[in-house]
Each structure stands twice: as C-alpha cells, then as structure tokens.
C-alpha cells in the first residue's frame, strides 16, 4: 500500500507545483507509515524521472503510452486508473492545479470516490487525517474527514506546502506500459494569448482594484493612487472580465502571480483565486468596507471604510510626503 503523488509536466518539463504535492505526500507518509510513489504520465521514457528520483520516495513510476504525449482527461484517467489498481494505493495526492481539477475527479469517480479538493492543510488525530478546505470564497474554513475505504483522493492548494522542503533521497525508477482507450477529445497545442505587455512580476508597488471600485470611470481613483506612489495598477478577475482593465493586469490563479514590496488591495474581498496570486507580497494593505472580508486575514494593514473616502486622502497625503 502506498501514497501516489502526481508529477505534472509539459513536454517533460516539471510543473513546480508538483514538488509541493511531493512535500505533502512525504508529510502524510510520516503520519501514516506509508511509502510514497511518484507517478509521471508520459509518452516517452520521461527525462523528468531522473530528476524526481532524487527525492525521498519509494519509487518513481513512468506511466507510459503514446497517447500520453499531450494532456487529455480521457488519457490521464485511463493511466491513473491502472496505476492506482496496480499499486493498491491508499492515498492519491496532487497539487490543485487547473490540470488536476480537470482529471482528478474523473479518476476518483471511477473508484466510486470523490476528491477532497483544494485543501490548505491537514492534521493528524491519532492516524485519522482531517483536511481543511477554504469555502465561501475564503470567508470560512471547513475541517473535513473522509469516510469509507481507500483510495482517498486529496489535492492541496498552491502554497500549502513548500516545494523546496520536499526531502531529497533516491528512488528507483520503473516504467509501466498502460492501456489508453479511445480519446474522445482532440487537443491542439497550448498557446499564450498575445504576450502580456505589462509584466507585473517586476513591480515594486502594486495598487489593485476589485469589485468595490464599482464602475470603469472609478478606475481613475485607483490610478491616481498608483501615480502618486509610482505603482503599477492591477485588478482582480471580475474587473478584467468586465473589461474595465485589460487582462494583462489580472492578478490571481488565472492571471499573474506577484510578490511586490507593497500590495494595496482596494475593494478586493480576497477570494482564494485572487490571493494565491499576491499573498507573498512583502506588505499587504487592504481597504474594504466589509470588515469580514477575507482579504483582512492576510493583510498587514487594514482600513475598514469606503475606498472613495480613503483613497483621495491617501493621494493628497502621499503627495505632501513626497514633496
């Protein structure tokens, strides 16, 4: 019996989120006495296997089939089903990436299971694991246990474990030829939409706006603050969906991930999809009229109040301070 951990890659280049999953799996292994096997679906004798075998793992399995040269949910589900059966896996641990969100519930369903998804941590109560998920757009946490028998499927949110904490060691590598049935979808090559013209990852200070800005005209209010601070303007997803700011200004899971010295969040509630993109900022300032907004949980400085009252005063005082 083992813990399987998914190694995500594109053309044998590692998605680093998988190392966080390795760290999570190693931690669960310590708590349960199980051993960890890494699984890499690939069409080749994957060059990534060598790199992954240098972690403290029992084994690295390359699940091999020509049809696994490019990701499809059907292909990955077939491969995973066989590996889970063959290894008699107790736990299947993955990083909660977009790709995992796509295929992991399908694999689980084949075993009559569901996934405990997007966990932020777990605790061990005498061998029984309790997983914590964030619900209601980050406003509440839920402690969750899993009933029934193995396999248990768990995915962890980005940042829940540190990839550089994954223990090194050495593991044997094994190739398992898997069957992949008909693929009911035909993938084209992934592409990047017109290269982001704004690289917010290099910004020192970011002023970001959320729903609280209310209208496109009001963007100017935030822009004035950005100008006063010499900051770049950014936004949460709803603002870019409404096309009030271009998509290359979007921070979060589907936009850019930033870690500026200072991040000022104006009228942003702090849903997970946004905070994963900015929680590593040096100093986080939040202005929101809702005192319960989850953004305050990760803020260093918080002001509960109307941003349209706060920001003009800020601009005025910053100009004074700078002159």
């Amino acid at each position: 019996m083992s813990i399987l951990v998914f190694i995500e890659h594109k053309d044998c280049v590692l998605n680093k989120a998988s190392l966080e999953a390795v760290a999570a799996a190693q931690s669960i292994a310590k708590d349960t006495g199980l051993k960890v096997t890494a699984v890499i679906p690939c069409s080749k004798d994957c060059s990534l296997a060598q790199e992954i075998s240098q972690y403290n793992l029992d084994k690295v399995i390359v699940a091999k089939n020509d049809k696994l040269n490019i990701y499809t949910p059907d292909g990955y589900a077939d491969a995973w089903e066989q590996i889970i059966k063959q290894t008699n896996a107790q736990y299947v641990v993955m990083a909660h990436t977009y790709q995992v969100r796509d295929f992991a519930p399908k694999v689980a369903a084949r075993f009559g299971k569901e996934i405990v998804g997007d966990c932020i941590r777990y605790t061990n109560n005498g061998g029984k694991l309790t997983f914590t998920r964030r619900i209601f757009l980050g406003k509440l946490d839920a402690d969750v246990t899993i009933e029934g028998g193995a396999p248990y499927f768990v995915t962890f949110q980005s940042g829940s474990f540190r990839g550089d904490n994954a223990e090194k060691g050495s593991a044997q590598t094994e190739t398992v030829e898997v069957d992949v049935k008909e693929l009911r979808m035909t993938p084209e090559e992934p592409f990047q939409e017109a290269k982001a013209s704004v690289d917010l990852t290099k910004s020192g200070i970011i002023v970001a706006v959320g729903r609280g800005i209310k209208s496109q005209e009001n963007i100017a209010v935030a822009q004035a603050l950005a100008d006063a601070l010499g900051a770049d303007l950014a936004a949460s997803r709803p603002i870019c969906d409404a096309e009030w700011l271009p998509i290359d200004r979007q921070i979060g899971s589907s936009g850019q991930t930033v870690a500026p010295k200072v991040y000022i969040a104006l009228g942003i509630s702090g849903a997970i999809q946004h905070t994963v993109g900015m929680k590593n900022a040096g100093t986080i300032v939040a202005v929101n009229k809702d005192a319960e907004a989850p953004i305050f949980d990760i803020a260093d400085y918080g002001i509960v109040g109307d941003l349209f009252e706060v920001v003009p005063t800020l601009v005025e005082e910053i100009k004074k301070a700078k002159s």
């Binding site: 509440l140 969750v144 260093d300």
Partner: peptide
C-alpha cells in the same frame, strides 16, 4: 465514501 464536514469556522489569522 463521502467527505464529511466536521466543523466550519472563521479562518485562523496567519498575520
């Protein structure tokens, strides 16, 4: 095989 919610609560402050 259900995931069972044992308890919901306000997120612990990390900062």
């Amino acid at each position: 095989s259900a995931q069972k919610i044992e308890k919901v609560y306000l997120p612990l402050k990390t900062k």
